[in-house]
Design a protein around this nucleic acid. Structure first.
Lengths: 195, 195, 195, 195
DNA sequence: TATGAATGAGCATTCATTCAT
DNA sequence: GATGAATGAATGCTCATTCAT
C-alpha cells in the first residue's frame, strides 16, 4: 500500500522509459528515423531533452527501442491470434488486422517495413540487422501457422504472405490510396482460403 | 565526325547534368535521400560542389532528378520488353529483370520503392507525390499487359504484381537474402503462366 | 550576498542573453546588419557560435534584439530626462546627448536610423516595421514635450526635431565630420529656445 | 551616315555600360548594395552575367557606378534649376523636386543618403568616401545659392537644408509615410521664404 | 567582346551529444 | 536522477569572381 520513494522513483523511471519508447515508435513511424530529432521524441514523451540520455545513450539506441516497441506490439497481436483454434483463422485474422490499419498504412506505410528500408541504407551501427530480426519474427509466426495447416513449403508461403503485406503497404503509401489495402487484403483472404 | 565548339560545349554541359542525375540516382539508392549530401553526389559525379547548383537549384531538385533517372531506366526496360509480341512474355521478362537485380535489391532494395517510402514521410515539397507517379508508370504498364491478355480486373492484377515485387525487394533487403528474389520470382512466373 | 545555485544559473543565463543583445547592438551598429555574421556577434559576446541559437532562433531575431537594445537605451536616456521639470530643458537635454555622441555618429551614424534604412529595403520578415516602431517611440516622447510646452502642432515639431537629428547624423557620417553634429546641434538648441 | 561595325560596336558597348549603370542605380536603391547581386543588376540591364565584368571589374565598381549615376541625375536636376534667375526660387525648386519624389522616398529613402549610410559601415574599399563626395556636390550647390542670396553662413544653411532632406526621407521611409515629405517640405519652403 | 559554365570561400542553421549543477 | 545550457561538427545554399571558348 505504501510506496517507498525508491520504488516510486523506479516505477516513474520505468514509466518514463516506456513513454520514450512509445513516443519514439510513433514519431519515427511518422517522420522516419533520419528526420526525427531527439528533441522531437523528448517532446512527444514529455521528457526534458537532457534527460533522454539517461535512458538511451545514443539516438541509435532510441531507434532500436522504437523498433523493439513495434516488435512488442506485433507480439501482442500475434499472441492474441494464437488464442484462435484454427491456424487458418489466425492467418486471416492477421490480414484483417493489417487491413484495419489501412489509413495509417496509406499515410506512413508499415512501421517495421519502412524502418527496415531506411536502416538498411546505413553502413554503420548494425541497426539494419535489427529491423530484419523483427520482420523475421513475423515470418516465423506465419510459417508456424502454415506448417500447422500441413502445407508444403510453409516458409515460402510465409514469405509470400508477409511480402504481399509489405508490398501493399508500400503501394498504398506511395499512391496515398488506402483502398489498396482493402483490395489486396481481400485477395489475400481468398488466397488463404484456397490453400 | 567533327565537332563544332558550340556543340561540344552544349554536349559537355548536357553530359555533366546527366552525370549528376546518374550519380544522384546511384548514391541516393545506396544511402537514401536523407543521408546523401550534395557533396556525396558531387564527388560521385566528379563535379565541384558549388557547380552542382548551376544545374540543380536545390537538393530536392536533385532528388527529383534521381527519381526521374530511375523512371527513365524503368522506361528503357519496359520499352525493350514492348518489342516482345506476347504480353505474357513481357510480364515474365519484367519479373526476370527483377530477379536479375537480386544482389542490388538485397543490398539496397528497389530504388523507386525505398525512395517512395522515404519521401512519403515528408510534409513539405511535392516530392512524395513524385515517387508515387513513377510507381504508377510501372502499374500502368503492367495493367496494359494484363488487359491485352484479356484478363479481368487488369488493374488489380497489376497491383498484385507490382506489390509482390516491392514486397520481395523489401524482404530480400531486410533479411539480406538475395535468395528471396529467386524464390518469389519463380512463384510470380508460375502465377503469370497460370492466369 | 549568497547566491543559490539556481539563481546563479538563471542570472548567468540571463547575463548571456543580455551580453548577446548588447554585442549585437554594437556590432550591427558598426558593420550593419547585412555584413554582420552570427560569428561576429558570438565572438563579441564571447559565446560559442552554436550556443547563440539557444537564445535566438534566427539571425533576424538577433537583429531584432539589437534593435530593442537600442530602444532600451533610448528609453533610459529619455527616462533620465523625464526627471527634469521643464519640457524645454528635456528637449535640449536630448539634443545635448546627441551632440555628445558626435564621434560615434560621425563614424557609424545613428544606430536606429541606419538600421531602419537598411531594414526598410527588405521585403521579407517584419523587421522593417520594427525599426519604424523604435523611431516612433522617440517621436512620441518629443511630441509629449512639445505638447507640454503648449505649442501648436507638437507632432510636426517632433518630426522636425527628430528629422534634423537623423539628417545631421547622416551628414556627419557621410562626410566623416563630427563638427556637423556640433553645428547643427547648436542650431537646434537655439531653435528650441526660440519656440 | 554610314556606321562602320567598329563604331556600332563601340556605341552598343557604351549603351550596355549605361544600361548597367542605370540598372545598378535602380536596383541598389531598391534592395541596398549588400542585398543586390551582380546577377540582379545583370538581369535588370538585360546583360549576361559573365559580360558584366567586361565593363566593371568588381561589384564595388558597379556600386560606385550606381553612385555616380545618382550624381549625374542630381546634376541634371540642379542644372535645370540653374536656369531660374532667382537663387531662392532654385532652392524652392529643389525642395519641390524632393517632395514630388515622396512615394519613392517613403519606399526606399533617398538614393544617395541610404547608400551613404550603407557604405559608411565598410572598412575596406574607400567607397564610403565616394558617397560623401556626392552629398558634398549637393551641399556645394545649395551653399552657392545661399551665398548668392547674400545670407550669412551659407555653408551652415546648406547643411541645414540638406540635413532636413535626409532626415525627412529617412523618417518617411522608416514610418512608411509619404505624408512626412509633404509636411516637412512645406516647412522648408516657408523657411526658405523667411530667410 | 561575349557568354555560359566553373569555382570555392563563406554563412546561417541544425542537431547529437556532453556538461555542470 | 534531472535538467537547462553548451558545444562543435556538419550541411545546404549563395555569390563574387574567373575561365574557356
Amino acid at each position: 500500500m505504501t510506496d517507498s520513494k525508491g520504488s516510486t522513483r523506479v516505477r516513474a523511471a520505468g514509466a518514463k522509459r516506456q513513454r520514450l519508447m512509445s513516443a519514439a515508435a510513433e514519431v519515427v513511424h511518422r517522420q522516419g528515423a533520419e528526420r526525427t530529432t531527439i528533441a522531437d521524441i523528448a517532446r512527444a514523451a514529455d521528457v526534458p531533452v537532457g534527460n533522454v540520455y539517461y535512458y538511451f545513450k545514443t539516438k541509435d539506441e532510441l531507434v532500436a527501442a522504437a523498433l523493439s516497441e513495434h516488435a512488442r506490439r506485433l507480439g501482442t497481436l500475434t499472441g492474441g491470434l494464437d488464442a484462435l483454434p484454427d491456424p487458418r483463422a489466425r492467418l486471416k485474422g492477421l490480414v484483417e488486422a493489417w487491413v484495419s490499419q489501412r489509413e495509417l498504412a496509406a499515410r506512413y506505410g508499415c512501421p517495421t517495413g519502412t524502418l527496415a528500408a531506411e536502416l538498411d541504407k546505413r553502413a554503420e551501427g548494425g541497426l539494419d540487422a535489427e529491423a530484419g530480426r523483427v520482420i523475421r519474427l513475423l515470418l516465423d509466426w506465419a510459417e508456424r501457422q502454415f506448417r500447422e495447416l500441413g502445407l508444403p513449403e510453409p516458409d515460402g508461403l510465409a514469405l509470400t504472405l508477409v511480402g504481399a503485406y509489405q508490398g501493399m503497404s508500400l503501394l498504398a503509401n506511395a499512391l496515398r490510396e488506402p483502398g489498396v489495402m482493402d483490395r489486396e487484403g481481400a485477395r489475400l483472404l481468398a488466397w488463404l482460403d484456397s490453400l
